[in-house]
Simulated scan of single mutants.
Amino acid sequence: MSELRKAAVLLMSLPEEDAAALLGKLTPKQVEVVSIEIAKLGRLSGTEQESVIQDFAGVNPAALGVAGGGLEVASHLVEKALGAEASKTLENVRQSIQSLPFGFLKKIDPQNLMTYIMDEHPQTIALILSHLPSTYGAEIIKGLPAERQLQVIRRIANMGQTNPEVISEVERGLESRMANVMNQSFEKAGGVNSVAEILNVTDRATERTLLESLAQEDPELVDEIRRLMFVFDDIGKLTDKDIQTVLKNVETSQWAMALKGASPELKQKVLGNLSTRAAQTLNEEIDYLGAKKLSEVEAVQQQIVDIVRKLEDAGQITVHAAEENEQLVQ
């Protein structure tokens, strides 16, 4: 990774005010160069951010996972950093980005692009992906059939210099075919999150029947849905009796790690269901752990969520949202 890209990734990982303040200490030309790189970034992965941020001391791991760069983000930072003197730099940034091959695809969702290039020759797909950010290209590759994935990757690896006229021809053809998509705004609907939300408020029998049937076709999808139906923070909604059942099935070391990233209310809810001595021991273990990566904390939180779901399936606890407001019969 180039030093320029590292600088762009670091700036995108900082709060906006801090990033703008740093840019404000650079010369207009330096701001322009870095801003162009930010505009080229596209989507960032937490792994790439972490790799860059580990070069710098004292960074909060909770800052990982921003959506990424883009022309709009870069422009906003330049305006904040240079104020009234931003116009010339902004224009240079826009011209640089717009002149990049396939630059118009940065505002197109990968799934929409997939529809248009799925049946293209592997060499054409390889040419397009070689001019896009790696995270964007990875999403496209993931959606291709296995045989086509290999063909495209092989061609990208062996691709040398390409005639600019060929690039321009492919770009014009694709841009023309996608003109309608580029001029439309899309609203994201459906997806696994929607399924989880629907099942969260259905009766338990319907939920179980649907998930069992779906599991026969796609067990991995069912796992994804179930993880979204009950998240770690929802433990705070459990009754004291159910929390005590969960406590018996989760190791103290797991609670210590998981509660590092929990709200004060949830932490108190858990500690309140322990004996004074056990609560003191858990608090000490939490303090002893020190700073931990957010990804590590979330992984342990998910382990506890999985245990909660297993306890629910066994009928030992009740977590179903639809039952929260169910009328009690005396």
Rank of each mutant, 00 (worst) to 15 (best):
Q330H: 08
G190S: 15
T252G: 04
G143P: 00
L129P: 03
F56W: 02
F56I: 13
N200A: 15
R43D: 13
G70F: 11
S99Y: 04
M1T: 12
G65E: 03
G68T: 12
V93H: 07
I125C: 00
T89Q: 05
T135Y: 05
F102M: 10
T276L: 07
R155S: 11
G58K: 03
Q184N: 10
M114T: 09
S213R: 14
A189I: 15
P264N: 03
V270K: 03
V34N: 09
F232Q: 08
V192L: 14
N200T: 14
T115N: 14
M12Y: 03
L4Q: 13
I286K: 06
D55L: 10
I317Q: 02
V222E: 04
S13R: 02
E296M: 03
Q254N: 11
A321E: 13
L266Q: 03
T318V: 15
V297F: 11
N163C: 09
L4I: 08
I286D: 07
E85A: 15
A256F: 11
H320I: 11
A19L: 10
K106G: 03
L14Q: 10
S51C: 01
Q111K: 12
V181N: 12
G236C: 07
E217Q: 15
V66F: 05
V52H: 05
L44C: 09
I307K: 12
A279E: 11
A205W: 02
G173D: 13
L77K: 02
N158Y: 13
P28A: 05
R43W: 06
